[in-house]
């Protein structure tokens, strides 16, 4: 708190310091280097905290149940094998994987199509309607999905979709709509009105404008929303837990949980299963890191 009064005099500080400039400058540089070193050390410690558990998981997945308990868990010695990977793949993980792909792709496509179309209609409309729709969406955004699992379970059960992949697709798409529309809206709104009007004057219908102007121009925001929603759906645990039951309809996060129930003591198998489930995301991350990062943060930074 003692720094506050000095800051008030901030604009004058430069003038007062001018005569004694040379020395503090050198001091500054040394300080800079020191703080850079401290930052490096602390940053590296966090890096170790991030990587060590993942390294442990990778190493453990390459053990067998026997060597897992006997070998040093942090050093890759004492016999490594990939046998657990094929074990878990054949024990049902492949099926969970396919389910996850189906649900994620369906959800992403539905969300993108619906949200972009809705955003387009909102900007083409009177501010009154847009305002009402916006308020409705923001309201839904503030309600945590955890609070809705009981009614969602009841609705899904009543319409006969309990324990189906469709139940997951519908609920997760609905949950993704508010965020998606709000992100897309802020993007679509910036598309120059003149472009739309020009097409309109040339006699293009609303859907021509949408298909040949809005969709191509919105590609960056579509990528952002697709990655954000795709990640959320791929990793969602709660809705599959509540809305599905049988192994044949389990998606990966739930499947992993079921694995732990069955293979509880076979840690290498569980670690292998976790790693297999994350492979598609790692590939995507490496292949398109920039879009990925934008997809992760774009939601908060809209």
């Amino acid at each position: 708190m003692s720094t506050a009064p000095q800051a008030v005099a901030l604009p004058a500080a430069g003038i007062e310091d001018a005569p004694a400039r040379r020395r503090p400058r050198l001091g500054h540089r040394a300080k800079r280097r020191l703080s850079g070193t401290v930052a490096f050390v602390l940053g590296t410690i966090w890096l170790i905290i991030v990587l060590a558990p993942i390294y442990f998981m990778v190493l453990s997945s390459l053990r067998t149940q026997g060597t897992y308990v006997t070998a040093n868990p942090w050093v890759p010695t004492g016999g490594l094998t990939g046998s657990e990977y094929s074990t878990v793949f054949h024990a049902g993980l492949g099926g969970y994987f396919v389910n996850s792909v189906i649900v994620t792709v369906a959800c992403v496509l539905i969300t993108l199509a619906l949200s972009l179309a809705a955003s387009f209609r909102i900007i083409r409309r009177t501010s009154r309607l847009s305002g009402a729709v916006m308020r409705l969406l923001v309201f839904g955004l503030a309600v945590p999905i955890q609070a809705l699992i009981v009614p969602l379970y009841i609705i899904i059960d009543k319409i006969g979709l309990y324990d189906t992949l469709s139940a997951l697709v519908l609920t997760m798409s609905a949950a993704a709509i508010p965020v998606s529309v709000l992100i897309m809206l802020s993007f679509v709104r910036d598309i120059p009105r003149e472009l739309i009007d020009a097409m309109s004057v040339d006699g293009a219908g609303e859907w021509r404008i949408f298909a040949s102007l809005i969709v191509p121009l919105s590609r960056p925001v579509l990528a952002t929303v697709a990655i954000y929603n795709g990640l959320n759906v791929w990793n969602n645990f709660l809705l599959p837990l509540v809305l599905t039951q049988s192994n044949s309809n389990a998606v990966l996060p739930l499947g992993l949980f079921k694995f732990q129930g069955e293979y509880g003591i076979d840690v290498p198998a569980i670690m292998a299963a976790v790693l297999l489930s994350v492979i598609p995301l790692v590939i995507l991350y490496i292949a398109m890191r920039r879009q990925f990062v934008r997809g992760l943060s774009g939601v908060a930074m809209r």
Partner: peptide
């Protein structure tokens, strides 16, 4: 033309969102 575009463009979103987010809020 506007109205039909609105229906096709907004209705599915509002129906899905209404049925699986707004209605559950009321049910809860």
């Amino acid at each position: 033309a506007y109205r039909s575009a609105d229906l096709v463009g907004l209705l599915p979103t509002l129906v899905l969102y209404g049925a699986l987010i707004l209605v559950p809020i009321v049910i809860a």
